[in-house]
Each structure stands twice: as C-alpha cells, then as structure tokens.
C-alpha cells in the first residue's frame, strides 16, 4: 500500500529525515516510536503533504502511484488521513458543516453522489455514538475552545466518517486521560480491517496496549534504527531509548 524508499527530508536546509525505508501492507498497524526531535511528526506530515518540508531524495509510492506528485487534498481523497498532534481551531465553521463538507468532498473525488441530508445525519450520529460523543459536539465551532481530549476525539471522528485506507495518528494519545484513550483506541480497532492500514506515532507504549501493532519501529536521528514486534515497545517502556542511542553510536564508530 505504502512504500517509502530512502526518504530524505529537509526543512530550510536542515536535514530531518535521513533515509527512511518503510513498507506498509493492507491490514497492518505500524507503530513509530522514538525520542523527541527524531523526526516522527515530520514523517507523518510529509506523507500528508505539508509543503514546508522539502523531499531532497527518495520516493514514496502509495497504491503504486507516486505520492509526492499528489496535492494535499488529492492524497486525502485517495484515502490518506492524518490525525493531527495539534488540531487547528477554526472558529466560524460548525463541526457538523465541516464533517458534511469533507464527506461530500471525498465522495465527489470518487465520483459518487453527495449524501442526502438523512443519510448524512445517520452517518454522523452513528459515528459520534461509536466514539461516545455528545451530539452537541456537532454544533460547536470546529475545535474552537475544545479541550485537548475533545480535539483528539474530533480527529478520530473525522477519521471515522472519512473511512481512510491509510490513517496516520500523530501522537493522538498525548494529553488523553485513560478513558479518552480507550475510546480513541476502540474507535481505531472498530475500523481495522484487511483493507486498511494505520501508522501510530507515539511516545508511550500505553496506547499500544489498546491498539496492538504488528510492527514497532524506532525512529532516531532521522532514521529507522530498529524494527520489531510489539515486544520492542515494551522493552522501550522499560529501558528507555538510551540503549538504542548507544547501539547506534557504537555501530557508527
């Protein structure tokens, strides 16, 4: 589904990603962990298409297409979704209106008709219920004055209504209490199937108790320095990142 080959990315001439290789197949969940500043969020944003990041070399193919050739919105309509670490507040746009717009934009992209008002209402109602959210949520302005937890839930709600093929969760767990974390994880688990894939970017192993990854990658200094199964996450939780940093240092000596 997604194939990243020797990806180098820079921001204002400073190299951030220095040769990422990653392959993601349908049905898989990949966790990306790593210390602060290792490039996790950059990787997430580059896949989504943020133009401040300059891809200096390497390729990303998505469903056998050159992903880097697609505009941000084209990527989204092709099934890529990024749950933001810091969702943007947009006063003046109601959440319901926004959700309708994005659902219909996606349908238009696939050559489908817009949803009728009744179908739309049904969709929004079922997804808010699934995430244990109050309907009042929908009439509030998008993320405006939302608590940290509400913002993250709203990201998952958007993911649920769009039903993407590849969802990237950028530190969706940070700032969540345990109840909200369960709700978010339940939402993701309910969506998991053999056709879609998830990239879960996180600092903490905690989330991975609820969303079980097939692969865990450690990103350090712009490279994936270690990959393994979920036991790697447990080991990181227990021992921290220092042993990995030492491994990398001794390997380069």
């Amino acid at each position: 589904m997604l194939n990243i080959r020797d990806l180098h990315v820079a921001v204002e001439d400073m190299a951030i990603l220095k040769g990422i290789n990653l392959e993601i197949k349908p049905g898989e969940v990949h966790a990306i962990m790593g210390p602060n500043g290792s490039g996790k969020s950059t990787l997430a944003q580059v896949i989504a298409g943020k133009d401040e990041y300059e891809v200096t070399s390497g390729t990303i193919t998505y469903k056998n297409e050159d992903l880097l050739d697609l505009e941000v919105d084209e990527r989204a309509r092709a099934g890529i979704f990024l749950a933001f670490q810091y969702p943007v507040e947009i006063p003046g746009v109601s959440t319901a209106h926004f959700l309708k717009s994005i659902v219909n934009a996606g349908r238009e992209g696939r050559g489908e008709d817009e949803l009728s008002a009744v179908e739309m209402l049904k969709l929004l109602r079922s997804k808010t219920q699934m995430l244990g959210m109050d309907q009042k949520f929908l009439s509030r302005a998008l993320n405006d004055g939302f608590s940290g937890g509400e913002k993250k839930k709203n990201e998952i709600l958007q993911m649920a209504v769009l039903n993407p093929k590849l969802a990237i969760l950028d530190e969706t767990d940070s700032g969540l209490d345990i109840d909200a974390l369960k709700i978010v994880a339940d939402g993701v688990n309910a969506m998991r199937n053999n056709d879609n894939a998830f990239i879960v970017v996180t600092h903490y192993q905690r989330l991975l108790n609820y969303i079980e990854p097939d692969f865990v990658h450690v990103l350090y200094n712009g490279q994936i320095v270690k990959s393994g199964d979920k036991s790697l996450a447990l080991k990181l939780e227990e021992k921290g990142y220092d042993w990995i940093k030492e491994e990398v240092a001794s390997a380069t000596v």
């Binding site: 505009e71 941000v72 919105d73 989204a76 947009i90 994005i102 934009a105 769009l162």
Partner: peptide, 14 residues
C-alpha cells in the same frame, strides 16, 4: 488551517 482542511480532502479553493 488551510493545510488542516486540505488534509481532509477539501480542494484549495473549497
């Protein structure tokens, strides 16, 4: 905000 909206599939103009 513009980037956020576009990652949801809205065109630049929309």
């Amino acid at each position: 905000a513009l980037f956020y909206l576009k990652t949801r599939g809205l065109s630049d103009d929309a």
